[in-house]
Design a protein around this nucleic acid. Structure first.
Lengths: 127, 127
DNA sequence: GTTGACTTACGAAGAACTTCGTAGTAAACT
DNA sequence: AGTTTACTACGAAGTTCTTCGTAAGTCAAC
């Protein structure tokens, strides 16, 4: 089954859930209010919408509901990459890779890191 | 100066302008109506909005206005990749590269193509 | 020069997204 | 028990995006 693509604000919340694990609204707010300045009920509403969409699930055993990501980080990453390849690079993953390399060309350090990353991967290293 | 990020529909139009060069509304429509089923005035309106945003420019010397992309393909690609890295991969291009490799792992053919792409790039080949 | 086809301009509607205010409910603390 | 604090639910407003309908302008061809 295909899950809906998270919006920007939803993605910010998912990052918190991925990093911190199951969290109440207040826990999510704690991480996001400094950077986004967003209010409590905004997070709450978003989590409720995400629940409807199936992006998160919640534990209602306590009055203080606890939300956890139902969409795995890797699945989300793959989905976003696939969508990008489709909409921007005409379905060619090769062209995306080329663009990344082309993009990093200006920075010797960055290019070197990518080269190292690929080498590690070829040796069978996982992340 | 930072150009606005094209929306999905705007991006579809930009692809046409990148592929075909300067085009009138009808020319853009010809390419998009089969795939998207969208109407004439929709394309027109979008082009007008894109003109305001600075994504395209237009030649009004003839009654039939001709639009051309002001935003270069490569710049758009770079912008979309950067935004993806920022919003999904926590700013780490390395993690994006890893995800692409991880993603292609299932397909031997795809992985091989990426490997070849990187090799070509290292030899100084341009796209 | 009138008609008909094509074009632009523009308003508006519906959808998704983001945000918050208000109201009601549960818990906690004197 | 009563008050204060914290939480959930929900409606609603503002924004952007996408789409189209309608009106008005241009041009060629009859």
């Amino acid at each position: 089954m295909r899950f809906p693509k998270p919006s920007e604000a939803e993605l910010r919340i998912l990052h918190v859930l991925w990093d911190q694990g199951p969290s109440a609204v207040r826990d999510v707010l704690a991480k996001l209010e400094k950077t986004t300045g967003v209010g409590y009920t905004t997070i709450l509403k978003l989590l409720q919408i995400m629940l409807e969409k199936g992006l998160v699930e919640r534990d209602e055993s306590s009055h203080r509901h606890v939300y956890s990501a139902k969409l795995a980080r890797e699945d989300a990453e793959e989905r976003f990459v696939d969508d990008l390849v489709e909409s921007v690079f005409n379905g060619s993953k090769k062209r995306l890779v080329l663009q990344i390399l082309e993009d990093a060309k200006s920075s010797q350090k960055e290019l070197e890191e990518i080269r190292r990353t690929i080498l590690e991967f070829e040796k069978g290293a996982v992340r």
